[in-house]
Design a protein around this nucleic acid. Structure first.
Length: 146
RNA sequence: UCGGCAAUUCGCCUUGUCGCUCUUCUGCAAAUUACAUUUUGCAUGAGGGAGGAAAGUCCGAACACCGCAGUGCGCCAUAGUGGUUAAUAGCCACCGAUCGUAAGAUUAGGAAAAGUGCAACAGAAAGAAUGUACAGAUCAUGCUGUAGUGAAAUCAGGUAAACUCUAUGGGGUGCAAUGCCAUGUAUACCAACGCUAAAGAGUUGCACGCUCGAUGUUGGAGGGUAGGCAGCUAAAGUGUAUUGGUAACACUACACUCAGAUAAAUGACAAGGACCUCUUUGAGGUACAGAAUUCGGCUUACAGAUUUGCCUGUUAA
């Protein structure tokens, strides 16, 4: 007969809650971002790409140092958007869409990837546009790597 | 009240859900150690988190390194007088000039008897030129004077945002500077020996001058790679008040701590409100724009508000 104190029970419930929350989380912390210069260079020279205009995803299967599904970066051309405010806005929209959508797509992936999402359009998008295109893009990506 | 001039302050707000980054309290885990401790990771909580221009990178500095800047020429910058400042080409005051009825605005404001160049219209001619008419002088004339054009016409004047001259000042490169750590291996690094005294390299654009100086041997040490840490935010700091000064500004006192990211945080969405516009039970709009070593200026962009002082005229009193 194992005795379980009420305090332990509370602690266990709390831990289970935390675990569940973690698995379905929508966060996008530093370790999930693509930061290494070398990896980015390799990504652009060797990676493959899929696109759902005005978004384009460059990906490369690789081994990362941390235990995340993918490291992802976003980028906007300086050519099409000259002002830093506009580029910031688009990058934030893309990051937000990726953050909310990635959980649904990446939970069953076994290998690790380096990803770079580019905005190749020339007009300022709205959030709903970016969101729907992100869905298409990630679906295409999953389809490609199967 | 309308119009104008100069300046001041601000430049959307609230709530909810989901996130990012930095700091910090606590808890848990791991590593390390004999222990204390320290470091790292994760989680909850608390707190901070773009601008007046953060922009252009046009000046001036701080800071850092390279170097020792020596001479001559060249090049660049500045240009009334006085003040202010860490410093400036900024700022303030005054004088002059130009514009405006005025409040005010602008100011590239040294020198034309050192030289070169340039000059609309008018005029014969604007400096290698001497016309025409009249008068005078003379042996004679292209000599002298007057008329006429023009701002200026023969011992002239304008122009230096034309060259030029004068006075003063000016090493170079920029935080991707630079230092340390980790990984870790070859040519360019350093020293000594040796060789040559030429080529060549560096030193500000050139010349002189100066320094290094191929290859090789030995020893030391590190190059490259934006990996990490430091530099990196408590400072020529911000606010208020007194005093001095016409002012820029300075002194003193009190209070405050206010982003530090690095493929680069400061957000996304929804609802409500505020203000503005219109075609008014609605619709649309809320500028310019995003920190990157840090300050002081300048310049440029800007929807809409806000307050203060002043000026002229009109109307009313």
């Amino acid at each position: 007969m194992v005795y379980i104190s009420p305090v332990d029970t509370v602690l266990m419930v709390f831990r289970i809650f935390v675990f569940l929350r973690k698995s379905m989380t929508n966060t996008f912390p530093k370790k999930e971002r693509l930061k290494s210069k070398k990896l980015i260079e390799a990504l652009f020279s060797e990676g493959q790409s899929v696109s759902a205009y005005p978004l384009r995803l460059v990906y490369l299967e690789t081994t990362l140092k941390t235990d995340v599904h993918a490291q992802t970066g976003v980028s906007v051309s300086k050519k099409h958007f000259k002002r830093a405010v506009d580029r910031n806005r688009i990058k934030r929209l893309m990051r937000e869409a990726y953050r909310l959508k990635k959980g649904a797509f990446f939970n069953n992936i076994t290998t690790q990837y380096a990803l770079m999402i580019l905005y190749i359009g020339k007009k300022m998008p709205t959030y709903t546009e970016v969101e729907s295109k992100m869905n298409q893009l990630l679906a295409k990506f999953l389809n490609d790597i199967k």
